[in-house]
Structure formats: structure tokens, C-alpha cells
Amino acid sequence: MAHAVRLTVNGTTHAHEVEPRLLLVHFLRDVLGLTGTHVGCDTSQCGACTVLVDGAAVKSCTSFAVQADGADIRTIEGLATGEALHPIQQAFWEKHGLQCGFCTPGMVMTLVQVLERNPDPTEAEVRSGIAGNLCRCTGYENIVEAARHAAAAMRAARA
């Protein structure tokens, strides 16, 4: 039985009829065509599917689209402002925080929440903030560097 959902994704409102079992990640990828959000596991470990639901980082493979009815969702595609990358994206580029790039969207979206709530995190705080995001390429060091670099840039922009 299909259920009507209405939700905002990256500022655009979408209304669809969905099967209750449709995972939020498949709604984003297969229904809306927003394929920047990836699926990396099936047990809620890897975080590649992380998006922001009402500002909170959520594993969209561990969430049904029906649960997001009425929600405001932000995905990696909605992060940059036109040509200008978000400071976290920019920092990943500068600090070589990605290799194959598959975990990157989820990693970046998690860090959006981490840095919003903690504008000047220690290295340990960054590492614990991304404990639910697995990366097999980078060994995390440059991701941590990028996060702290982005935090500094975001602080400077606000000052």
C-alpha cells in the first residue's frame, strides 16, 4: 500500500507516493535521482548514506522514506552554493581528504553537524564525531585535518 510523503530536499519540495518499505536512501537515489548519497553497507556501520534530516546527521539506509514525511533534508548535492563549495568540501579538496570519493558525501554531511555544534573541535572530537563513517582509503588522518581546517575557515568567516 503506497503512502503519500511530502518532504523538502535541498530546498525543493517533493510529493510522492511510496511503498512503506522504501528506504530513504533509495528514495533519494532512485526516485529523486540524487545519487551523491551512497550505500556502503547493510548494518548501519559505514555512514556512506549520511544525510541531514532536520539538521541532524542520519543514516538514510537505516530510515524509511515514510518516516521523513514533512522533513527538511539536505544531501551532498545541496551543500555548495553554486560555484562556491561549502568550507568542508573545500577543506577536503585542499587537505586531500578523499581518494576514491565513495565515502566522502556521507563523511562531509556528518561533519556538517559535528562542526555546527562544535565550531572548534579537538582532533579527538573530530575522530569521535566521524566514528560512524568508514573510509577504506585515507586512514582518516587527512579527513581529520580537513575537518579542523574547515572549522577554522568557518570560524573566520563568522568573525
Binding site: 555512514g47 549520511t50 542520519v58 543514516k59 537505516t62 530510515s63 560512524g132 563513517n133
Partner: peptide
């Protein structure tokens, strides 16, 4: 408990 995303939910 678990990680940030799991704790959010």
C-alpha cells in the same frame, strides 16, 4: 553508544 548518526535517531 554507537555513533553520532545512530544517537541522533
Amino acid at each position: 553508544v554507537a555513533d553520532l548518526q545512530v544517537r541522533n535517531r
